[in-house]
Simulated scan of single mutants.
Amino acid sequence: MPNSALKLDIVDRVARITINRPDAMNAVNGELHTALSRIFIDLGARRDINVIVLTGEGRAFCAGGDIEWMREAVVEPEKFEIVTWEAKRIVYSMLDCEIPIIGRINGDAVGLGATLALLCDITVMDENARIGDPHVRVGLNAADGGGFLWPQVIGYGKARELLLTGDLLSANEAKQLGAIGNVVPASELDAKVEALVGKLRNGATKAIRWTKAGYTIPLRQLAHGHMDAGIAYECLTNLSKDHHEAIDAFANKRKPVFTGQ
C-alpha cells in the first residue's frame, strides 16, 4: 500500500503513482521496495481504473537501490531473502497487471529504476535523462528484472554490453534502441503523457486490458524462468567481497577496488 515513500492519487479512472524520495533521487529503500511489491497487485484487482501513470518526485525517476539499504543487507544478509522475494513480486505484478502502465520518466532511471521503466507499457522520457542497469558496478548480479528485460527489449547484442559494463544510455540512445517509446523536452513531458492517458482512459477498456494480457505472455514466461536463478546469484553476490568493497567505497566517496572475490 502507498506510504510516505510512494504516493498514490486516483482521479477520473487514472491512478498516478509517484516515487517520493526526492532528497535521495528516489533511491529505493526497504519501505519503498515493500510498497512497490504490493501496489500493482492492489491496483490490478480494481475495475474503476483504466490507466496507471508511474513517475518520480523531483529530479529523478528512480536512482536504483539506496546505498544504506544495501549496507543493511550486507550486515544482515538474511534480510536480503525478503528483498529478493519482493523483487520477484514487483516484476510479476507489473507484468500481471492488465491495466496499462505509462512511465513518466522525468529523470534518471537506474538499476531497479530502469527495470520499472522497462516494465511500463508506454514510456515518455525527459530528453536529458539517462537509463541503465549498473548492478555490476556495485558488485551485484542484475537480477531484479534487468537480466531478462534488456535483451528482450533491445536485443542481445547491445544488452549484453550494457549489463556487463553498467553503462547508462541517454534518452535518445534508449529510444533509438527501442527501450523507450517517446523522448521529449521536460517542458513537453506532461502534455505528451496526458495525451496518452486520454487515449487509454477513454478507450475500449476490456480490449485494452486483454491486449496487454496477451502481449505480456512471453515476458511473463521469461520472468518466471529467469527470476529464481537470477535472485539466487544476486544473493551470492550480496555476500561477495567485491560488493562489500563497493558499499564501503561509496560511503567513503572513493573508487572501488575490485579483486574478483
Results as ranks from 00 to 15, higher is better:
114 A>W: 06
114 A>T: 05
115 T>K: 10
116 L>D: 02
116 L>N: 03
117 A>M: 03
119 L>F: 15
121 D>A: 06
121 D>G: 13
121 D>T: 15
122 I>K: 07
124 V>F: 05
126 D>H: 01
128 N>A: 06
129 A>C: 04
133 D>A: 15
135 H>E: 06
135 H>V: 01
135 H>D: 10
137 R>F: 02
138 V>T: 07
141 N>K: 13
143 A>Q: 01
144 D>E: 15
144 D>Y: 05
145 G>I: 03
147 G>V: 07
148 F>Y: 14
149 L>N: 09
149 L>Y: 10
150 W>R: 01
152 Q>G: 13
152 Q>P: 10
154 I>L: 08
155 G>R: 08
156 Y>C: 12
156 Y>W: 15
156 Y>H: 12
157 G>R: 09
158 K>N: 04
159 A>M: 07
160 R>Q: 13
160 R>P: 02
162 L>Y: 10
162 L>I: 09
164 L>R: 12
166 G>H: 12
166 G>A: 00
167 D>N: 15
168 L>F: 13
169 L>Q: 03
170 S>C: 05
173 E>A: 09
173 E>M: 10
174 A>N: 03
177 L>F: 04
181 G>I: 07
182 N>T: 13
182 N>R: 09
185 P>W: 01
186 A>L: 11
187 S>G: 11
187 S>F: 02
188 E>F: 08
188 E>C: 05
189 L>K: 00
189 L>A: 00
190 D>C: 00
190 D>W: 00
191 A>E: 13
193 V>F: 01
195 A>H: 11
195 A>K: 08
196 L>C: 09
196 L>K: 00
197 V>Y: 07
201 R>K: 15
201 R>G: 08
202 N>F: 14
204 A>N: 14
205 T>M: 09
207 A>T: 07
208 I>W: 00
208 I>D: 01
209 R>F: 04
211 T>W: 03
212 K>H: 11
213 A>D: 07
214 G>W: 14
218 P>G: 14
219 L>W: 13
223 A>C: 14
224 H>D: 15
224 H>Y: 15
228 D>M: 11
231 I>Y: 06
231 I>H: 04
232 A>D: 08
233 Y>I: 11
233 Y>L: 14
234 E>T: 08
236 L>F: 05
237 T>S: 08
237 T>P: 01
237 T>Q: 01
238 N>K: 02
239 L>K: 10
240 S>P: 08
242 D>P: 01
